[in-house]
């Protein structure tokens, strides 16, 4: 840009000064926007933090351990929702992890021709594209009735275990966990598949050359080598599960009572917000903001850890 030559030097010099200004302001504009996008994270934290300050002052740490949510007496605590958030996410991971890793293996190894694999990969991605609220609607009318015999059987035969201590109520933790597992499966599969597929092919041939079978290679060489990527993908999936809202709200039953049983209605922080926020006023609204801040903090930590792991894997 400074390479103005020969007789047109004067001309170019003039033009380049306006051009330089244009150039510089353009670069600055893009820079501001880029930093702004990252700044949104901080903006969210500050905004939600400010709005929950009254509830923080009022309840402090007892908000985390109090299990009452009572708008009439203005008493608020989120223990049942924290329990519900964590347990529903764990159920989801428990189901999605083995399935997701199996999908990642089938879709990264050469079990199938590449074109077939591509189509299957696309279909797994589509799972993530279906709107959350549609899963919720489907959950109410298809999944919950379908789970009735299974839930009743669990209660009849394993009722002595606290997890199955209540009769199957329909909406509750179990259908919520199942729906969540469907929704987090694609991201788990995608990251796990990526880390398997990005392993150097030398590793695979090296293992075959000492006489491993395909599955010995997968379990003893490939999965250990891709382990951190699989962990990263699982954590990313956990982050999604913790914050997933609409599908869960529609099938979890939204009961603010703390129950250990996965067959009973429950609640998560996200579905608490979805249910009550629009009509909340005063201290209830502040308490909901506080609950939102907690959810934001938890998912932020999980996501930062997950992204850090995934990033590191990509470099390798």
């Amino acid at each position: 840009m400074t390479a103005a030559l020969g007789d047109s030097q004067a001309d170019n010099a003039k033009r380049s000064s306006t051009e330089k200004n244009l150039d510089n302001s353009f670069i600055w504009l893009t820079r501001i926007f880029a930093i702004g996008v990252a700044g949104v994270l901080i903006w969210i934290a500050v905004q939600v933090g400010i709005q929950s300050r009254r509830a923080i002052q009022e309840f402090g740490w007892s908000f985390w351990t109090n299990s009452a949510w009572n708008p009439v007496e203005q008493q608020y605590g989120v223990l049942p929702m924290i329990y519900g958030t964590i347990v529903s996410s764990l159920i989801a991971l428990l189901i999605a992890f083995p399935i997701g890793v199996a999908c990642a293996i089938v879709l990264s190894e050469n079990f199938l021709p590449l074109s077939v694999r591509r189509t299957l990969i696309f279909m797994v991605e589509l799972l993530a594209a279906i709107p959350s609220v549609v899963y919720g609607l489907w959950g109410i009318y298809v999944l919950i009735p379908f789970l009735k015999p299974i839930g009743s059987w669990l209660h009849d035969n394993f009722g002595w275990i606290p997890l199955f201590a209540t009769p199957y109520a329909g909406p509750g933790m179990l259908p919520a966990g199942l729906i969540l597992s469907i929704m987090i499966l694609p991201i788990l599969t995608a990251i796990a598949r990526d880390s398997l597929a990005s392993l150097p092919s030398d590793l695979r041939t090296g293992s075959y050359a000492v006489g491993s079978t395909r599955w010995q290679t997968i379990f003893s060489v490939l999965i250990p080598a891709a382990f951190s990527g699989i962990v990263g993908g699982t954590m990313l999936a956990l982050g999604r599960a913790l914050g997933e809202t609409m599908a869960v709200t529609l099938v979890i039953g939204n009961s603010n009572e703390l129950q250990l049983s996965v067959l009973a209605p429950a609640n998560t922080i996200a579905s608490l917000l979805a249910n009550q926020f629009a009509e909340a006023k005063g201290l209830q609204e502040d308490s909901l903001m506080y609950a939102g801040l907690i959810l934001f903090a938890i998912t932020l930590v999980v996501n930062i850890l997950a992204e850090a792991i995934v990033q590191k894997v990509k470099k390798y």
């Binding site: 982050g239 913790l242 809202t245 939102g292 998912t299 996501n303 992204e307």
Partner: peptide, 9 residues
Amino acid sequence: VLSGVPSII
């Protein structure tokens, strides 16, 4: 990280 923030938040 921003793309992982729950939509309800």
